[in-house]
Amino acid sequence: MTKSIISGGVYLPTLRIKRDEYLSALGSCSAAMREKTVMDIDEDVITMAVAAARDALADLDVSRVGVLTLASTNFPYQEKALAGTLVEALGLDKHVLTSQHGNSTIAGTEALLAALGLLEQTEQQYALVVVSDAPTSGPDVDMEHGFGAAACAFVLAKDEPGLAFEGVYAQSGETMGLRYRLPGETDIRDIGVKAFATLDYNEMVKAAVTGLVSKLNRNLADYRHIVMHQADAKTAAALAKKMGCSDVQTKEGSVFADTGDIGACSSLLGLCRVLESAASGDCLLISSYGSGSGSQALSFRLQAPLKNSGSFQARLEDKKYIGYIQYLKQKRSI
């Protein structure tokens, strides 16, 4: 059975804050985005998830969805099955197989891989993967400066032409002290040694990506687009270059400059962006990363253009800027 992504969906909140706002309010900004997405006061990762899923399911028969997987690092409840909220909001069949992934920014690709597996356990034709994230911390934590918000969704199908899944390769290991959050705490902690964080990112992602291309007997040059996990744009770009990727291969999948750090969504939103221009025959590679740590690299080949690749560009252009004070009010910090 081949399994392919046949449809994509995107949601970006309308509100944006420019990096310049941080510079004029705080005198500095720890993240190198141009601007980032901000959830409105009545939005959370579930409302964004519903919007992205509706985008992906437009024109499809929702009664044929047999699997729903969901990922975020910032669910609104620490305990509660949230797939049910989506089942109701989307009008899905109540017997869908569900799985919920969190606790790390690697959760996005985990949800995609889980859906590929669960699809074999259902008589239905489709699996829906929804990854919605808005990493959160107090405004006095440097890492917070880069935290944005976004959601993306994919419909996987059995034996239908689309973006065919080719394979995965993973790397996991124990790395201590990088981007973690204790139960009940709202702030992200980190030992704050940038060189150590970069070293871990490089080792994990490189092992997953090189392992994948060698498993598939390919070279990185065979890929039209290579989408990296972008907790910050510079580290991702530097590693891609070090591995031998060209700027042309990585440019279109970069979303950090426009959205900031969108956690578990990062490389999957990049995938939505490249799908808007990818052509039949193109090979695409995406890699995720979660601190602590692990990385998963996934390979796809576009057999036929998607019916619906999601509304990335339209969402990107629909925006309204807010100032830093309003941003703090949105976050209920003041």
Partner: peptide, 13 residues
């Protein structure tokens, strides 16, 4: 689809 309000710690979508 949005959060309408929250009461008793329960989000009303």
């Amino acid at each position: 689809f949005r959060k309408i309000y929250e009461e008793e710690g329960v989000i009303r979508y």
